[in-house]
Design a protein around this nucleic acid. Structure first.
Lengths: 189, 189
DNA sequence: CTATAAAATTGATTTAAATCAAGAAAGTAT
DNA sequence: ATACTTTCTTGATTTAAATCAATTTTATAG
């Protein structure tokens, strides 16, 4: 919790009172390995900060799952799209490792945002980041080859390969586990 | 203009007064073929409804351009991400055909949203749609093969092939123009 | 600690799409 | 209408990644 609060304080400079309001609505919660945080088809009415552990975001597909993202400590998880729109989520979020979470219920979040400008701003920035991330991801999938995507990921998040089962990483890159394995030996890791 | 206003009225049910406020800030504007509406690197401070014509959204890439989306009559164009965050846009938007636009300046939009709940809601929905669209697009790029993406696009937007130069469509699908051409003959169009 | 399951690697083969190259068709401007 | 450019198509070849198949390594539960 401390690290998270520290980050929020540093970035958004909430007042003492605002910080208490935030702390007041956060509920500690836990997930086992492979336990779902959000299932496609359900409306996302909870967001969570991960204080410990990792999760993956994936899409259902007739044959295979497709892994689209990973989350670690200090990141916020949930489908912003579903949370905002009350539409059923098309994404799944599931724990890869055991997770400690600080969850936020929708009603509380709405109230928090309504009464505190700092959190209104924070919400807006989270949405912006999501939009920018999507733009970049889309571009990367279109303009980079699988091998380039692999190399970029190795540069930007080498730790990911230590912590995440590689077939999820392969799926994230849009390749088969075999191909990922071959890239790894090719680029001597 | 009429069609656009009709759509907004139907969907968001603004009051007479709100509708006037919206009309009051819309400025008619035109773009020639290949003229930029938004250049990567610039901050997006203008949004626009297309009343006539078509545009494409693309990313710069060292070698090639990568086309990521198309816009036609009655859609809103601009980089929501850049517009919200004031960060330089990473996307370009350029006219494919000559365009008639109704543009909205950032200051006016902010004011409009500030004073009118209907437009606050409208903004929120536009953002949601953007987020949902991104999720779907990302999933499609990862889980569908190029050929499947082609077939889906043929089903969902057959008119696109009539109106948009095919090399842009190819780029949107993440394939070469040659491959698109072969798909077309293969699936007898 | 062992048994079992899940994940990762390695090799051989197939397949889909890219690339290279040329020509045809369509669009635009003079 | 003619020339010129851009776009589209078609064919031959290459290439990257998928698939198929088997094995090794690693993780997990009893």
């Amino acid at each position: 919790m401390n690290q998270l609060i520290f980050n929020i304080e540093k970035t958004f400079k909430p007042s003492e009172e605002e910080l208490d309001a935030l702390k007041g609505i956060m509920i500690e919660s836990y997930l086992d390995r492979n336990e779902f945080f959000l299932k496609a088809g359900n409306v996302c009415d909870t967001l969570a900060f991960i204080t410990n552990g990792s999760m993956r975001l994936f899409y259902d597909s007739p044959d295979k799952e497709v892994c689209n993202d990973f989350f670690f400590e200090n990141s916020l998880v949930g489908s912003i799209a579903s949370f905002m729109s009350n539409m059923p989520s098309i994404i799944n979020i599931v724990a890869i490792e055991k997770c400690c979470l600080l969850t936020l219920q929708k009603n509380d979040v709405i109230e928090l945002i309504q009464y505190h400008d700092t959190f209104k701003k924070m919400a807006s920035i989270i949405i912006q980041e999501q939009l920018i991330r999507s733009e970049k991801r889309e571009a990367a999938l279109l303009r980079n080859s699988p091998e380039e995507r692999f190399k970029n990921l190795m540069e930007e998040h080498p730790k990911l390969f230590k912590r995440i089962p590689l077939h999820y990483v392969a799926s994230y890159l849009g390749i088969t586990p075999e191909t990922l394995s071959r890239y790894r030996t090719k680029f001597l890791l």
